[in-house]
């Protein structure tokens, strides 16, 4: 097995997590795709720097974080820029998520799915339709008989509830650790 094959295996193992990290750190969805690829290429070029006794995921996110900061510097959109402290906060959350049970990132997100299942029906329905049925906002509104603005507000509030729920689960994980 050559280095490229090993690299591919490592990348496939961590790609979903990396994408979610970038998606959380960058508003522009198109930029997420570019940064995702740039992170992988940078990781490939700097493979020799990787300490193989340490986990690959945080190393990959470290590269991604630096590229995100560089992205905002180049864009000169300081108003939208994410701060190093915010990236650090994100990294701490992903580090905790990585410790959850499960082989894949999707499996590790079982905690979040449990939080979704526990949402009150009025919040569960728009979350389910938008994320798990991949409906657009307008279609979600039509399906539920809600105005577009109402859908947006419910989704925002639902995500706030999910954030609280997930935070409690991660806190429990930290306590048990």
């Amino acid at each position: 097995m050559d280095a490229r094959q090993v690299f591919e295996i490592l990348v496939r193992e961590h790609a979903d997590m990396l994408w979610a990290y970038l998606r959380a750190g960058v508003r522009d969805a198109n930029a997420v795709d570019d940064l995702f690829q740039e992170t992988l290429l940078t990781a490939w070029r700097r493979l020799a720097d990787f300490d193989r006794l340490r986990p690959f995921g945080p190393w990959l996110r470290g590269i991604a974080g630096r590229l995100v900061l560089a992205h905002y510097r180049q864009q000169a959109r300081q108003a939208e820029a994410i701060s190093p402290a915010a990236l650090e906060w994100l990294e701490s959350r992903f580090a905790q998520l990585q410790r959850l049970d499960g082989d894949t990132f999707a499996e590790k997100l079982a905690a979040l799915r449990a939080c979704v299942d526990a949402l009150p029906a009025s919040f569960h329905a728009p979350v389910h339709l938008k994320y798990f049925e991949a409906l657009g906002l307008e279609e979600t509104g039509r399906t539920l008989g809600l105005a577009l603005e109402t859908v947006k507000k419910r989704l925002f509030r639902a995500r706030a509830k999910l954030a609280d729920c997930l935070e409690r689960k991660l806190l429990a994980l930290r306590s048990s650790a």
Binding site: W19, A20, R23, L40, L90, L112, Y131
Partner: peptide
């Protein structure tokens, strides 16, 4: 930031990122 984090995690939990990730 917290909202974006949960949004990203929900998309990942639903597998909506798979095509983009594979393409990348």
């Amino acid at each position: 930031l917290q909202d974006r984090l949960v949004d990203a995690l929900l998309l990942a939990a639903a597998g909506q990122q798979r095509a983009e990730v594979e393409t990348g």
